[in-house]
């Protein structure tokens, strides 16, 4: 076990660091159709994982919703709200998503394939993805005010064009 852990650590340490790509995983959209999340790449994306039982996740989405008009005036981007609710709560999550599905692209990852592929251990977790599909920023947890880092990163990406 000791050897295995050291091997993993050593492997991590020797490689150069750069951006991970958004994985090519299929999820359900708000119309019930199965789409590949890579199809949504094209402009900067803010990806927020949430579930019905995750209060800070919903708080983060509602705070972004408060500010979305101001943010969109500063940069062209999309927000993906990815529900990881399983079959038990998917219907409730779809109902709840009515609050923000006009402003966000709502996705439903009921089997948590995308969550697993992006190595999300706990929610809330947010990512910023550039227009080429590279993950350029991520953050675990949500405290009021931390949403500002997401838009700052998106604005930084917009300036790089």
């Amino acid at each position: 076990m000791k050897k295995l852990l050291c091997l993993i650590l050593a492997s991590i340490s020797i490689f150069s660091l750069s951006a991970q790509q958004l994985p090519d995983v299929k999820v359900e959209n708000s119309e019930g159709k199965i789409i590949s999340v890579r199809e949504l790449v094209g402009k900067p994306l803010i990806i927020c994982y949430w579930s019905i039982t995750c209060k800070p996740c919903i708080q983060e989405l509602m705070t972004i919703l408060d500010q979305i008009e101001d943010w969109k005036a500063e940069a062209d981007f999309e927000v993906l709200a990815v529900s990881v609710d399983d079959s038990r709560l998917k219907a409730t999550a779809k109902a709840k998503s009515q609050v923000f599905n006009k402003d966000f692209i709502c996705l439903f990852d009921a089997n948590q394939d995308l969550k697993r592929a992006m190595n999300v251990s706990l929610t809330p977790q947010s990512f910023v993805v550039d227009k080429s599909g590279n993950i350029v920023y991520s953050h675990t947890g949500y405290t009021p005010g931390s949403e500002q880092e997401l838009i700052d990163k998106v604005i930084e990406l917009s300036k790089k064009r």
Binding site: L5, S13, F15, L17, S18, Q20, N119
Partner: peptide, 30 residues
Amino acid sequence: LFFAVALLCSFVASAQISLGEKGGVISGSI
């Protein structure tokens, strides 16, 4: 040992790891 490794990995692991354009990408979680 596990604490030390987990903590060290946590700090090392602040970005994804690319093995070059054709070498693929390593990602993970702890």
